[in-house]
């Protein structure tokens, strides 16, 4: 075990280190006319500075709060809608096609409209993020509600489950893997939308405005700090989501 560990650690850190070296080399040699392009050390110093001054943590928390609020709203709307679409054939026929058309609208196309309809403040952003999460969550809950195999459907009939028992003991548990998958995609989408909302809609504290101020000040190091943190936060969110999801569907 330990014998294999060292090469493995080496392999995992190879590309990050190589990229860092390349980056350092390019900036140090001054080959390019990318005079503005900061060296790695500069970026890390900047990151550290922004972190210690409290700017970065504050922006991160603001973005996360916005992201999770929108995600929660999208899930609260999407799970019941998706389940109802799948559980009630009548409702599915009536509302399904409309939802299917709605989901074709590229999420960013809503930005100009939402800004106008929901004001310039926080609510427009949260509604936008919620919409981004809502679509995959609904799609998956809808599929999940139809996921109970015919064989188990028959088992519930033979065991004479009441409609309520059928829902609680069979249909919903069978839908859970899809719901979890939808929530995971929804969380990723919400994060994309959070950045989009902060970037395109009104200025508000958050990682998006870190990027914007970096761009406006021609502070490339600040922009890079923002990109770095955005990616890492996305990884963290996705990891947490997939761990929690796995716990929920341990029976699989």
């Amino acid at each position: 075990m330990t014998a294999g560990l060292a090469p493995r650690v080496l392999r995992f850190s190879l590309l990050p280190l190589a990229l860092l070296a390349l980056w350092q080399g390019v900036t140090a040699a001054g080959w390019t006319d990318l005079r503005e392009f900061p060296a790695p050390a500069t970026v890390f110093a900047r990151a550290l500075g922004e972190w210690q001054s409290g700017v970065l943590p504050e922006a991160l928390l603001a973005s996360l709060a916005r992201d999770l609020a929108g995600f929660a709203l999208g899930a609260a709307a999407g799970i019941p809608l998706g389940l109802t679409l799948g559980l009630s054939p009548w409702f599915g026929r009536l509302v399904g096609p409309t939802f299917d058309s709605f989901k074709q609208i590229a999420i960013f196309a809503w930005i100009p409209l939402f800004g106008l309809w929901f004001g310039m403040g926080e609510s427009a952003k949260v509604v936008f993020i919620a919409t981004a999460a809502f679509v995959p969550i609904t799609v998956n809950a809808w599929a999940g509600a139809r996921a109970l195999p015919q064989t188990l459907e028959e088992a519930t009939a033979v065991l004479r489950f009441s409609p309520w028992q059928r829902l609680i003991w069979a249909r919903l548990p069978a839908a859970l893997p899809d719901i979890v998958a939808g929530l995971r995609v929804g969380l990723i989408n919400a994060w994309l939308a959070t950045v989009g909302a902060e970037y395109f809609m009104s200025v508000a504290p958050g990682l998006g405005s870190v990027l914007i101020s970096g761009r406006d000040l021609y502070a490339m190091d600040l922009v890079l700090v923002g990109v770095l943190v955005l990616g890492l936060t996305g990884v963290a969110l996705d990891t947490v989501a997939s761990r929690l999801g796995a716990i929920l569907i341990r029976w699989q």
């Binding site: 064989t151 088992a155 004479r160 009441s162 003991w169 069979a170 548990p173």
Partner: peptide, 23 residues
């Protein structure tokens, strides 16, 4: 009893048996 067991995968063995007492 069917050819395939048709147990509910999300219930434990004893819960599956209890499902036979649903009514």
């Amino acid at each position: 009893v069917f050819q395939e067991h048709r147990l509910f995968p999300w219930l434990t063995a004893v819960q599956n048996v209890e499902a036979g007492l649903a009514r």
